[in-house]
Amino acid sequence: MGGMNEINVTPLIDVMLVLLVIFMVTAPLLTTGVQVDLPKVKSAPMQTDDSKMLVIVTADEHVYLGKDEITDAVEDKLKTNARLQEERELYVQADENVKYGAVLRVMAAARSAGVEKLGMVTDPLVVK
């Protein structure tokens, strides 16, 4: 009597089914977004006097030019601002919790309005 010449594939199928279930459960967990904590930087405090044109983007994505809210027509308001068209310089201050896309929309509107110098205003990191 000779030995058995066939491979028993039943344990292989069992292992493959277990792996399939594991991957089916973990795959949706891998595709969800991951929150990234951006690093804080040390910066010198900017002189925030009234001589600088400042656009503020709040956490709820409202946009202000000075004290006036311009959320609905950012690009139009920037294009019609005489001081901005003369100086061509604008600073953007955004809340740290605002969505990245909201800040980019304001920056794109400023560029299309003719702004040549675009700066970001940050709060200095307090070091104790």
Rank of each mutant, 00 (worst) to 15 (best):
K79N: 07
E86G: 08
N97I: 07
E69T: 06
Y91T: 05
D68V: 13
D76S: 12
K67H: 11
Q93N: 12
A82H: 08
E61A: 14
A73W: 04
K67G: 02
K79I: 03
N81L: 00
E61P: 01
K67S: 12
I70D: 04
L65C: 07
T71H: 06
D72L: 12
L65R: 11
A73H: 13
G66A: 09
D76W: 06
L84Y: 06
E61M: 10
T80F: 04
T80A: 03
A59N: 08
Y100H: 09
V103K: 05
E75M: 11
V103Q: 04
K77N: 10
A94F: 05
V63L: 04
Q93R: 15
G66L: 05
V63H: 01
N97L: 13
A59R: 13
E69M: 09
D72H: 13
V74R: 02
A102Q: 10
A94C: 07
I70C: 05
A94Q: 03
A73Q: 10
E69L: 06
L65S: 10
A94S: 11
R83I: 01
D72T: 14
L84C: 03
E61R: 15
V92T: 05
V92E: 01
D60R: 15
V103A: 03
E96K: 15
Y91Q: 01
Y100S: 05
V63D: 00
V98M: 04
Q85C: 11
Y100Q: 08
Y100G: 02
A59M: 07
A82G: 11
A59H: 10
D60Q: 13
D72S: 13
Y91G: 00
E75Q: 14
V103F: 02
Q85G: 07
V74N: 03
A82F: 06
V98Y: 03
A73K: 15
R88I: 05
D95V: 07
D95M: 04
L65F: 15
L84H: 04
E75I: 07
K79H: 03
I70F: 08
E69P: 02
Y91V: 01
T80W: 01
K99Y: 06
V103S: 00
D68H: 12
E89L: 09
D68T: 12
N81A: 01
D95A: 15
H62Q: 12
N81D: 08
E89K: 14
K99S: 08
E69H: 11
Q93Y: 15
G66Q: 08
K77C: 02
Y64R: 13
A73D: 09
G101R: 10
E61W: 09
G66N: 09
E86N: 13
